[in-house]
Design a protein around this nucleic acid. Structure first.
Lengths: 188, 188
DNA sequence: GTCTATATTGGGATAGAC
DNA sequence: GTCTATCCCAATATAGAC
């Protein structure tokens, strides 16, 4: 059997799970420590601060999201489905670990003080990933208008993420998929 | 000249402005007190807690949003413009007082602990207002499909609000308007 | 109703030993 | 690197007088 992961990895796992479910601001450091089974000083030796831990956890989460989305795209049968696969990925990503209240990257930027650059940077990376891949996937569907369609879909994906605050996440992604489909079908 | 408003009103004004610009969690009570020129005990005598003040401030904000949106609808020349006027209202609402980082209602729900019902209730009222009026305004454009179109637009409006975290608010509403227009024009 | 002054505690971070 | 124990402060809330 695999050995118990080191303290650093356990901290990252605990942070990603708890920050996603309870929100960053709403999750005390103690809760992360308790779940990871680690002493306070260990956290600060590795990450320097709660914010530093958040940055590392978000970086790991972005890689995981990238993988989940890629897999969803690979599983889709045609160009249209590949473009809409982002919503399948959102469903899979949410139900995979602990279901999150809403997007951890938007949560980070919304909760951070105005001068905190780390949260903004993490959200910017997430945005760049979304925008870039949506453009690639939109190309076979919309041709020259790929960038325009991608911007539309970025709004809808972001809307679906935030709609998780207004209603339950499953409904939010389902509605987002429907809205995105309505937009995509303008280009058929 | 108008007399200086009472402490209660000054607290509400200060709270709405500071919570909108700095976020609820990121705004200490002291900052609200300082801006209102009021002593701590006065705040707690009127509102009971910081959360109580937030609830009252959000209620006032919802009324103001309702008015701004109504005015934008009244100023629009035709059915299509009336349906898209929500984005004009968002621009006017944001630039009116202190520009807010993003939607105060979504912020409240995102930042509140899971058991806090007041923030969720305030967001629910905001959602009901959006959904209801979008349906009314969609009727002349989409007829029987008004409810369906309204749900699409609710996602887009929510997306525009959250996009203010990814980019600056002016770009967010502009993109939202464009995306909404693309959807509305499916029903032309 | 409003003030001054103070109580209380949750929670992020550190000191120093092992 | 990791632990135990502790510090420190920010921030919410209250006591009691006017």
């Amino acid at each position: 059997m695999t050995p118990r992961p080191g303290a650093r990895q356990r901290l990252l796992d605990a942070a990603e799970e708890l920050f996603a479910s309870g929100g960053f601001a709403g999750t005390p450091v103690d809760a992360v420590l308790a779940r990871a089974g680690v002493a306070p000083a260990t956290l600060y030796a590795h990450f320097g601060s709660k914010t530093g831990l958040q940055a590392a956890a978000l970086a790991a989460r972005l890689r995981r999201w990238d993988d989940v989305w890629s897999a969803a795209v690979a599983a889709a049968p045609d160009d249209r489905a590949r473009l809409l696969a982002v919503f399948d990925a959102l469903d899979a990503f949410g139900t995979g670990g602990t279901p999150s209240r809403w997007c951890a990257f938007l949560d980070a930027a919304a909760g951070a003080p105005a001068d905190d650059g780390t949260a903004v940077a993490a959200l910017a990376e997430d945005t760049a990933l979304l925008r870039g891949r949506l453009r690639e996937l939109a190309a076979p569907v919309a041709g020259e208008d790929a960038a325009e369609l991608a911007e539309h879909l970025l709004v809808v994906v972001t809307g679906a993420l935030a709609m998780a605050l207004r209603t339950d996440p499953a409904r939010a992604t389902a509605q987002g998929r429907a809205t995105a489909a309505a937009l995509v079908d303008r280009w058929r």
